[in-house]
Design a binder for these strands. Structure first.
Lengths: 218, 218
DNA sequence: TAGATTGTTAATCGATTAACAATC
DNA sequence: TAGATTGTTAATCGATTAACAATC
């Protein structure tokens, strides 16, 4: 199997989140600047200028040597690449405290992530409305996701329910899932999974508190 | 400056979150198993057996060739290394929907992350009680964090307020911060920062939906 | 032209994987 | 002992950084 597709080298997996951060930086720059250099973007985002140029070069020659990148043009390119501006249909599985918070999260809606369905196992919650969405029973996940054309699933259920929630989404044709449940889940090839594990994040911080040497004052 | 400290090679930054996941797996294994091999841990966690052995070997020789790792003993070692079982004092800055969800998040409390203070800029919220904690005004962050001996800060404020929130925590002696604000923040040397950016996560998923080739059915 | 900055190549770095001698 | 599995070394892989010729 070839490691490269087409002529250009593959975009490193880690670069994708950087693109999103560049895009956000450009949004703010667009107000006051026509051009921006990789050096300036570096100062704003904290990534090195070399890395920024390299990331951007993956998608063609956007920059002008001696001048930099045209802010508007680059912003539009990145938006196109990331699918910003589009509207994405999102399903939420698990309407506990975290799930409710995400349902209410303005930034999501504003960025085009439109929650079109919400599911829960708890019969007390099913049928209730939440942020304008009626909560459906978890047994309806795959059917409704297919019917509504859900593209992205967000899973905020307890650990023990995570795999079943994910499997139902996959059965419903969902090809991208963001998992907040503190448990490993498996997805078939062709489905993208990203996981955010808050307990692990906290424990990683605790590790550093215990093991990093204190920095002497200067 | 030397690249290594002591004799052993440095633990890769990326290994720290794996340790936390191993620990969690062991917790569940402890019920029914005395020993566990790296191969079995691999099947459970999804990391390769070689990687697991390598990660664990950083902290000494826990395993028994031919037999595997003693579950209880390894569990205790990892707990000690990660500071699990300890109680950590946490401050929450920003009691919006996401912040409230985290305040209510049982798993946090159960894992020893004890929210001892909550702050907000909104005078309407200040003085109210939430999950047994009185919400204080953001101007009191550094003073109260120092007084209460807060060790970890969790920041769930809007982007524009992120840097100030973080700076106040740092001023209050907080050495580890988990930032959910969709904005870059800077911390001085000696302070650990981890960031979770939900918009970036979603946009990364959108990127894959747009660019990954569909997987042909077999 | 002189100065600035890109896009890209080569060098470096860090982390993962494979392989296997040592060990129970 | 035979079989299994560790801990570690060497090879591989992937991503980042430095450097600079090409370009505006």
């Amino acid at each position: 199997m070839p490691k490269e597709r087409g002529g250009a080298k593959r975009l490193p997996e880690t670069a994708i989140t950087r693109l999103s951060i560049y895009r956000r930086a450009l949004e703010r720059l667009a107000a006051g600047h026509t051009y921006v250099s990789s050096a300036r973007l570096s100062a704003i985002t904290g990534f090195t200028a070399a890395q920024i140029r390299r990331d951007l070069a993956h998608f063609g020659q956007f920059g002008v040597p001696g001048t930099g990148y045209e802010v508007r043009a680059l912003q539009m390119q990145l938006s196109r690449i990331l699918g910003a501006g589009r509207s994405w249909r999102v399903a939420l599985v698990g309407v506990g405290s975290l799930g409710s918070a995400l349902l209410a999260y303005r930034a999501f809606q504003e960025q085009g992530f439109r929650v079109v369905a919400a599911f829960d196992n708890d019969l007390v919650k099913v049928g209730k409305r939440w942020e304008g969405i009626e909560i459906e029973h978890a047994s309806r996940i795959s059917g409704l996701c297919r019917e509504l054309g859900v593209e992205i699933g967000v899973v905020t259920v307890p650990a023990r329910a995570a795999q079943e929630a994910v499997s139902s989404l996959v059965a419903g044709g969902v090809k991208a899932i963001l998992n907040f449940a503190p448990h490993r889940v498996e997805v078939p090839e062709g489905v993208r999974l990203r996981s955010v594990d808050l307990s692990v994040e906290m424990e990683a911080l605790a590790f550093h508190l215990l093991h990093d040497p204190p920095v002497p004052r200067r």
